[in-house]
Amino acid sequence: MIVYLLTTFLFVLGLYCLVAKKNIIKKIIGVITMEYAANLFLILVGYKARGIAPILTKGASKTEFVTKSVDPLPQALVLTAIVIGLGTIALMVALCIRLYERYGTFDMSEIRRLRG
């Protein structure tokens, strides 16, 4: 149970960082933290105490594999989610570089042309 609470704490920490910090790099770090908290949660869903890796090797007994191996699906999902996160982060960082080029600052409170 405590691990789920810690995951929630990580998630909220990311949300706090996103809301409270003005520097856009720190905001990105907040988004990443939130994303990884969600990924961690997904991995924990498939966790099994004393489980084995869900990889069938030559000569392993199938019954032991079925009863003991952890759930492989969340791992596949997390891999995909990480890849998607990577794409998003690459775009965010690229946008940051461009924003710095245009505005000369990383401070979100100074990047304020749009209002209303």
Binding site: L15, L18, I24, K27, V31, M34, E35, T88, L91, M92, L95, C96, R98, L99, R102, I111, R112, R113, L114
Partner: peptide, 15 residues
């Protein structure tokens, strides 16, 4: 404007 709008959109939509 485009960059700023896109960044805002990106952050909120990422959440």
């Amino acid at each position: 404007e485009e960059l700023e709008a896109s960044f805002k959109y990106l952050i909120l939509s990422g959440v």
